[in-house]
Amino acid sequence: MLKRTGIACSEDIERARPDETRRKQGPVAWIECFREIPCDPCHDACRVGAIEEFSDINDLPCIDHEACTGCGLCVAACPGLAIFVIDETHSETQALLALPHEFTPLPDAGDEVVLMTRSGQEAGYGRVHRVQAPRAFDRTAVIWVIIPQDLVEQVRAIKPLHQVIDEEGGEKQ
């Protein structure tokens, strides 16, 4: 349970999940901000106006998945690091997951990375498709990772490379 463990449960995830049709059309944001807090930068970050203006700053964000282009700007802007973009059209078996990442060193495109679930369990390997870290993202990189289709609801992080390096006692390959 989220308030006991920090892990979102299926009812929470239900609220973030775009509908089936939209998911089949390409990248779309999953806003996993499940508890009301006073915060609204996601609205300002969206260039296409898909994230509604907040009438009360404590409201949960409200997104129009149809309007969302899956650009990922909100992923970098969310102070809670709670927004992800998922593209389930990447291939038959693989999806593309964009996640916020604030660790150093950053992986490079093509690197194999360890996937982590919401509960911090390792869930196999993914491959970095693209790394976005422009100045405008202010040190929150957005990493696009290729992951298995069946893990789109589970994987929400990649293991920081420095941890991998420590464990292997070696250098980044």
């Binding site: 920090g6 892990i7 901000c33 690091l81 709670a82 982590m116 919401r118 920081p160």
Partner: peptide, 13 residues
């Protein structure tokens, strides 16, 4: 905040 909890939890804490 739940978002702070989730971001450490998913990194294995």
């Amino acid at each position: 905040y739940a978002v702070h909890a989730s971001k450490v939890r998913r990194l294995g804490v």
